[in-house]
Design a protein around this nucleic acid. Sequence first.
DNA 1: AGAAACCCTGTAGCAACTAAAGAGTCAAGA
DNA 2: TCTTGACTCTTTAGTTGCTACAGGGTTTCT
Lengths: 160, 160
Amino acid sequence: MKIGELAKATGTQVETIRYYEREGLLPETSRTDGNYRIYGEAHAQRLSFIRHCRSLDMTLDEIRVLLRFKDAPTENCGEVNALLDEHIGHVAARIRELRSLERQLKGLRDLCQEAQDAAHCGILNELARQGSEGGSSAAGHVHGAHGRSVERKTMKDKRK
Amino acid sequence: MKIGELAKATGTQVETIRYYEREGLLPETSRTDGNYRIYGEAHAQRLSFIRHCRSLDMTLDEIRVLLRFKDAPTENCGEVNALLDEHIGHVAARIRELRSLERQLKGLRDLCQEAQDAAHCGILNELARQGSEGGSSAAGHVHGAHGRSVERKTMKDKRK
DNA sequence: AGAAACCCTGTAGCAACTAAAGAGTCAAGA
DNA sequence: TCTTGACTCTTTAGTTGCTACAGGGTTTCT
């Protein structure tokens, strides 16, 4: 099947499929004389695997690890368990952080019961207060299962 | 004070301060003869406001709205309340999604009680199952208060 | 004077896509 | 056969909020 068919079969964007091929998650496939990609069932299954992992908010690096085991059926899957445990830990941590953030935001919201002029808005005044930056250090602490700080961790290494 | 001092005073990276200036969040400031930026207390306060908002995971666009009200003390702050309500809604939604994700992941984790060869790993096999992609549509659904889909929403508009 | 710390601008990169430009291919219908 | 519209291709750029680096200038202190 052609790329559009594969996209439909797996609920994926055509562009995303090409992206996964560039990223090495999907092996390159044969082409027609007109240079169109031709996929078989194996590719469809692999893509479904990848999409399933993405739906669980795993990073592409995590997925690469899982694919490695998928491709090596005799390998011991202990690392798969560990990876999942770690990922679950990330999610739990993120939930805790978001809960904390929710409480802060609600507290802040309560400072302005009814609209008035901005100068007397309890929210704006609280935001302007020095030393009111919350418990954690600042931006990026409440994103996904993989916060931006985690994403950024590899930047230095990558440049090396 | 110079940029390094401002950075220390507000717990911000120097580069981030320059970034905020480029992004229009911080007004440009006067310079020394040697072209060093010179900041006063007003800038320090504004930056603290911004950082406080960031610590609450507000986007820079949201912060721009709040700054507009901060700069217009006679304006009615109803929109501030609405913005905060919406932001709180985003956080609540994200918490719900993460909890759902957590349940899914734990269910998946339970499929492999002890490490064995990958071919018989309940986790890998479940991930490979067709039609197992979870309730939501795929990637990007469980990130921060502002999911990746939200971030991406403005791409089309920006290109115009 | 020299060295170290600081500052500047411009550019690139991170993750995981997504969009657009410009061009080629294919299939169906006139 | 020709036309047209859908599909495909590659390449490049962009999203968010930073962060890092290159290369060079300025300031401070010894």
